[in-house]
Each structure stands twice: as structure tokens, then as C-alpha cells.
Amino acid sequence: MSALLRAQALSFAHPGQAPLLEAFDLEVRAGALLVLLGPSGCGKSTLLRLLGGLVAPTAGAVERYPRLRVAMVFQEPRLLPWRSVAGNLDFALEAAGLPRSARPARIEAALARVGLQGHAAAAPHTLSGGMAQRAALARALCVEPDLLLLDEPFAALDPLRREALGAHLRGLLGPGLGMVLVSHDVHEAAALADRVVVLGGAPAQLRLDRALAPEERGSPAVVAALRAALRSAGAGGAV
């Protein structure tokens, strides 16, 4: 599997504050789901934004595969409330420079991939939390990204919907699509990941980098190992 992007000696600090990241290295490969696991406030969301190019590092660089297309899903759906579901996807396609005539087919295909066919004309405030987050996922998918960056996308969902959407995400994985998912939940990480990177400390250090075989996914041993790594990462007994 080839590298989609490579963070090299990445450092980041908010102006006038202690560094969140210092000389951090990470390689993200295609076709796999990488979970960035860490306690709240450890800098994992910032790392995700650095990988996505939403914030600039204070030192180091993110080297990307040429013409890599990255899309992002946030904790909240962040849908434009004045546009329909289809209109929200159209916003991303317009930004991507897709001609108007090519957009409806893309929108339809993306909505089908997340199980929202038939909801194209719905207003965002009429959707349930889970449906709204799936619409946000469709907005990310419609630009046909090579890499999906997900910032705790299940945080606002109830456990049942969380599990369903997680399984759905794994179903979308393929040779052309890699994912980086930020989470603070060991069970979620153990259940979904091909590879888990545990972060902790300030500035954030790599505490564990472990690949999971399919049969290991969700196993109590993995959960225990991740929990132990999180403890050493400074989350105490809270997890």
C-alpha cells in the first residue's frame, strides 16, 4: 500500500502557547482506516487539520501524494441550513470546480453510498442527527476523495447509530480510499481500525502504533492494549 501523505517533523503551537506537537512523524497509507486515539485536548484534532491543510504547521511539513484529494467530516454535520441536502453536496462540488452539468449524477451517487437516496430535497433541520451526519459524509464523498479525514464524527450520535455509521464507514473503504479517524474511544478504535496510533502528553508523543489484523478487530485484548497505551498517555483512569 502506497503512502497518501507523510507528516515530517511536524510541529504546531497556537501563538503564545505551549506546543501541541513537536517533530511529529506519521505516514498515512491508502485503502486503510487509521485511528488517531488520544485523550481530549491532546492535539489529535489539530494533527488532523494539519494533515488536511486546514492549519499550517509552525515547523515541518506534510508531504502529499501528487493531486491527492482530501475531504473532511467534522464532529457536527456543518450543513448549510438554507440549502437542501443536495444543495449542500453541490456546495462542495462547486468548490471542487466540477461543472454544473456533472453535479447531479455525483450527488445522487454519493447519497446512495450513505443510504440517503430519496432525501436529496430534504432540509437539514428535518434530518435526524445520524442522517445529518451521513449527509455530511456524502458531501465529503461526492468529490471522490482519496483520503477522508474524520474528526470524531460519531461524537453527537447515540451508541446504536454510532455503531451503524462505523460499520458503514468500513464498508466504504477500498483501494482508492483511505481514512484517518480521530477518536477518544478505545472501543470505537478497536472495532474500526486497521491501524491505531495512540497519542499523549504535551507536546503529543506517539505512545503506540499498532496494526490490527481483521480477526483482532474488537477483541478484548486489543481494547485492553489500547486502554493501557491511553493510560500511559496521561488520560488516567478516565477511560
Binding site: 488536511g52 486546514l54 475531504a71 473532511m72 467534522f74 457536527e76 456543518r78 456546495f91 468548490a95 468529490v143
Partner: peptide
């Protein structure tokens, strides 16, 4: 949050 979303999709 919406401005960040617009930035993330690459809106000009």
C-alpha cells in the same frame, strides 16, 4: 464552523 467547512472543501 461553517467557514472552516468551506475552507475544507476548498471554496474560494
Amino acid at each position: 464552523q461553517l467557514l472552516e467547512m468551506a475552507h475544507a472543501v476548498g471554496a474560494g
